[in-house]
Design a protein around this nucleic acid. Structure first.
Lengths: 229, 229
DNA sequence: GGATGTGAAGTAGTTCACAGCC
DNA sequence: GGCTGTGAACTACTTCACATCC
């Protein structure tokens, strides 16, 4: 209201990874009818310190009230703005095996500005069927205009898929294939690799932070809240 | 050979997240019959700087050869040791919707010391069927002894699943439900949230590192290699 | 009183630059 | 010559401690 289109610049990478977590927490409180939260409560749920929460949120402009914490609705909105949720992102998914289906059928994957515009697969048994309201197109078809491409194909096909998507001017790739792909400058690639996540967890179970340690953690920035009472 | 059981201590969190990536790169080269690699090549594929690669690997003890780079096989082995792959981890998966199926059927998820020991679901249509060589057990059954539990249930069920797993002495949870869960001290939790990964990608497409920027990035530590030639 | 927002201090991670070894 | 491994410099992030405002 006070800041019509002031997009707070330069959020740090760790902050960017934590904001969606705070937003998820805010949504949870909204759904339960709570509409005030303070930095300590967020911190406990997110598994970080209260100071970190305040620092992160301060980067979005003034949105808390001294003495009274944050309004959950405002928090939710502001984080959304900061993450660019006011824009629309056209998303296409390539590969509709179990993983691709899990994604497009999830009520939680495509939210906040992201909308599904097309599905592609090579399997003739899948092409032409309807999934999540979209008829699956053959991979040999031209790629419809889109901002983000989600790659859910076997690793050996990932690079080929990436190449075609890049050629079709898709600007961001979310790669679920356990395969490093190369793209020209100007294309953002983000990897999600289940096996790596499992390996990180296993490491913590042995060494370091884990055995019966306090507060796991990690990149996503969370873990192991609730310390006793 | 020289260091029989010297587990290099205290790897930093970012390093731990990058090691599996290097290992994946090493596996790829091994599969293609290449058996030498240098830090610059790894760096380019992983999307980080060569210095970072060398620093990370130096933490595992001496494993490169000055002037000649790294032996891909040794690299692979040493990273495996460092991540604790010589131990065995019994893994159970709860929830066999599309996501759970995608995980257990993937040849790339359960590798390196992780072995599936049981599957659970609440759906009577799924219980009793065989998936990936295991008969799905009803959720009401006792939990078989395991080290890691993978949660692939809807968000509203995630906390309940976590509680039962913790009670059954499962030490690590990999939570795919978009839901913050609370656990007592001593239980490691690692979150994987597709929607958050998508949001991070969308952020980069607008602001910061992305628009036509060099080298995306992120927690997992990679992206956008291959800079031109 | 109570919780935010922030300068200042501390810590962790990355990058530089080069010595050391093959 | 080439590339690793590493002290030293730098940068980024987190935490402390408290002034500030409701």
């Amino acid at each position: 209201m006070a800041t019509p289109r002031l997009r707070a610049r330069k959020l740090s990478e760790p902050t960017i990874a934590r904001l969606p977590v705070y937003q998820r927490i805010a949504e949870g409180w909204l759904a339960r009818g709570q509409n005030r939260i303070d930095s300590r409560q967020i911190a406990e749920l997110a598994g970080v310190t209260a100071t970190t929460v305040r620092r992160d949120l301060a980067g979005l402009g003034t949105l808390g009230t001294r003495g009274a914490g944050y309004d959950v609705g405002v928090l939710n909105d502001r984080i959304g703005e900061a993450l660019g949720h006011d824009r629309k992102y056209d998303v296409i998914v390539v590969g509709l095996g179990n993983l691709g289906r899990a994604l497009v059928n999830s009520t939680n994957f495509l939210i906040r500005g992201a909308q599904l515009v097309a599905l592609y697969d090579v399997d003739p048994g899948v092409v032409g069927t309807e999934i999540a309201g979209h008829v699956v197109r053959p991979w040999s078809d031209p790629i419809v205009p889109a901002t983000v491409g989600v790659i859910c194909v076997p690793p050996e096909a990932a690079q080929e898929v990436a190449d075609k998507l890049v050629k079709a001017k898709v600007r961001g790739l979310l790669n679920f294939a356990p395969q490093v792909i190369t793209t020209p400058l100007g294309t953002a690639v983000h990897y999600v690799d289940f096996s790596i996540e499992l390996q990180i967890l296993m490491y913590h179970l042995n060494n370091g932070t884990g055995p019966l340690g306090g507060g796991l953690l990690h990149s996503l920035g969370l873990a192991n809240p609730l310390r006793g009472s």
